[in-house]
C-alpha cells in the first residue's frame, strides 16, 4: 500500500519537475499582445475571419497583416480595446455581411433535364452531364454548402439551399464551396435581393425556370441606380440604398424578393 503511494507520487513528482523545466527552458517567446488580443476576440474559434481560430487571427492582427475588425462576433467595445492594446487609431466595426444563395429555382420552379444518380455533392453532380438542373447557373441542391457551413446556417428548402442570415457567421466557407459560384456575401442590413445568377438570355431562362431574371431591365429603372445590368442579368449594387417597396411585385421574372 505504502509502496504504491510512494511510486505514484514519485512518478508525479518526476513528471512535474520535467514539465516545469520544459516550460522554463523550452518555451517559445511569444508577443504578449497576441494573448491579450486572443482573449478580447472571445475565443469562439468560428473561422469567420478566414484564419484558423482566434489565435491565428490575433497573430495576424498583431503582425499587422489583418485589420482587427474582421471578427463578426466582436462587440464594438472589444474592438476599441483591441485597437487600444495595439496602440492604433480606433477602427470602426465592419458592416456585418451574410451569405446569400442567388437562386430560388427549387424543385417546383425550375426544370430538371434528367434524374441524377450518384454522389450527393454538388461538384460531383455538376460533373455528370453538366448537372441535372436545366439552368446552368441554378443551385444544384446537393448540399455541398450545407456541409461546409460550420454554423448550421444553411437549410435545403425544396431542393435549393437557403442561408438563415441570423445564424450566418460570415465565414465565406459556403461561397468557396459552391461549384456554381452562386453564393454571394451581402450586407446583413440589405433585405431586397435578386435571386438569380443566370447569364443566359431571357428566352432561355424562361424555358427552364419560373423564377429567373429575364433581363427585362424594369428593375434598373425602378431602383434608380441601385440595380445594374451585368449582361442580361440584373445585379444589386449594395453600395447604393435600395428602398423601392414595389420592386418584388414589379419583377416579371419573380426573382426579386424582400426577405
Amino acid at each position: 500500500m505504502i509502496t504504491s503511494i510512494l511510486v505514484v507520487s514519485g512518478i508525479g513528482l518526476v513528471c512535474g519537475v520535467a514539465l516545469a523545466l520544459g516550460a522554463r527552458y523550452l518555451s517559445v517567446e511569444e508577443n504578449p499582445l497576441i494573448g491579450t488580443v486572443t482573449e478580447l476576440l472571445l475565443g469562439a474559434n468560428c473561422g469567420a475571419c478566414g484564419y484558423a481560430g482566434c489565435g491565428g487571427y490575433a497573430q495576424a492582427i498583431v503582425a499587422g497583416e489583418a485589420p482587427p475588425n474582421r471578427c463578426p462576433s466582436c462587440t464594438p467595445e472589444a474592438l476599441a480595446q483591441i485597437s487600444a492594446a495595439l496602440g492604433i487609431a480606433p477602427i470602426e466595426a465592419a458592416a456585418r455581411e451574410v451569405a446569400l444563395v442567388l437562386c430560388r429555382g427549387d424543385d417546383e420552379q425550375a426544370q430538371k433535364r434528367f434524374v441524377y444518380d450518384g454522389i450527393t455533392a454538388c461538384a460531383a453532380a455538376a460533373a455528370v452531364g453538366g448537372g441535372d438542373k436545366a439552368c446552368r447557373y441554378g443551385c444544384l441542391g446537393y448540399g455541398t454548402c450545407l456541409r461546409a457551413c460550420p454554423a448550421g446556417a444553411i437549410e435545403m428548402v425544396n431542393g435549393v439551399a437557403r442561408v438563415h442570415p441570423e445564424l450566418c457567421i460570415s465565414c465565406r466557407k459556403c461561397v468557396a464551396a459552391c461549384p456554381r459560384g452562386i453564393i454571394r456575401m451581402v450586407p446583413a442590413a440589405s433585405h431586397t435581393h435578386i435571386f438569380c445568377s443566370s447569364r443566359d438570355p431571357g428566352a432561355t431562362v424562361r424555358k427552364v425556370c419560373k423564377v429567373g431574371c429575364i433581363g427585362c431591365r424594369i428593375c434598373t429603372r425602378l431602383a434608380e441606380g441601385a440595380i445594374t445590368m451585368d449582361g442580361t442579368l440584373a445585379v444589386v449594387d449594395y453600395k447604393q440604398p435600395l428602398d423601392n417597396e414595389e420592386l418584388p411585385a414589379k419583377c416579371p421574372g419573380k426573382c426579386i424578393l424582400k426577405v
Binding site: G118, I119, A123, A124, A127, V128
Partner: peptide
Amino acid sequence: RPLVQHMRRAKA
C-alpha cells in the same frame, strides 16, 4: 457506392 464517380472526381 458510386466508386467510379469518386475515382473520377479525385482524378479530375
